[in-house]
Design a protein around this nucleic acid. Structure first.
Lengths: 158, 158
DNA sequence: ACCATACGGTAAGGTAGCTTGACAAGGTCA
DNA sequence: TGACCTTGTCAAGCTACCTTACCGTATGGT
């Protein structure tokens, strides 16, 4: 991105979303690396992004929430267990299931990530105005829920 | 995403951006497929998203604008050329360079994509309110430009 | 007690989309 | 004219994620 094409041309919504997301992603993993969490990769987001901070979650729940397959999430969990960020404990309520829980190091990393997000929110708020930014976040969340709405049930033919 | 975890838990900004982008992406490529442009893939976005509609652009310019490597964009261009969406012509001003231009089929596909985007904009606007949505788009664009801002020059030590 | 179903895991293999490295041909400028 | 940079391309390889298939164990309805 060395030239100024994007100053004069509008990217479509999808392009703007992708670019902003990419910028945040670069900052997140860059700063996690500096903070000593360099072994956390984007693929681990399906765990950190969707797990209960305390109490943990089942593999199947993480797969459902993230929209990925159990295999993909299982691989991420195996990685994070090896790296010491999560631990798997048997679920007392279901002998088949295991609870995936953040270890203390995992909670530290999650806290570090949340600080980075808070820092980004602060800078974004300062750039466009806090009220404007709050509205933006709110609208984005509504659009997210909108895209997750179940398709309209076809009208029943009486 | 079968359970309702995301109703009660806030995804961080990056998660919201990723999810909404994914939803738009699904719709875009699904509908392009139905419209007879099923051979256009997300990887081609670095061309369609950043090329001048008439006049075309150089490979290096597309790489700069999209933030990808020349190799990645070159592969997308080779694909699109084979599929008939773009053509490569020698640049009269520089013997090394080639101008990548949308063919007539390429312009048709771009127009189809723009209709899909307009349709999504219409639905999003209806969901959250047109004014609110216009503000949202505007703020998103400002945040995009903000993330593209050159790093602050360190204050010169007099 | 039986059997369908769900949970988690293993394994093999594949695809999309990018990367790094090396390079020839053409341009730029002292 | 020689040193250097730019443009585009070839080749090799990586990451993230998917698919299909199979398995053992546990649960729950009948």
């Amino acid at each position: 991105m060395r030239d100024d094409w994007y100053i004069d041309h509008d990217l479509p919504l999808i392009g703007l979303l992708a670019e902003v997301q990419g910028a945040i992603s670069d900052e997140l993993y860059g700063r996690l690396h500096e903070a000593g969490y360099g072994d956390i990769r984007p693929a681990h987001g399906c765990v950190f992004g969707f797990i209960e901070r305390t109490g943990g979650a089942r593999l199947t729940a993480l797969a459902d929430r993230s929209g990925l397959t159990k295999q993909a999430v299982g691989e991420a969990v195996a990685d994070l267990e090896r790296l010491g960020y999560v631990e798997r404990v048997p679920d007392p309520e279901d002998g088949r299931a295991k609870i995936i829980r953040l270890s203390s190091r995992g909670r530290e990393a999650a806290a570090a990530a949340e600080e980075i997000f808070a820092d980004i929110d602060r800078r974004f708020g300062a750039e466009v105005g806090d009220e404007r930014y709050a509205d933006f976040r709110d609208t984005l969340r509504r659009l997210f829920l909108f895209t997750r709405m179940p398709a309209r049930t076809p009208a029943r033919v009486a």
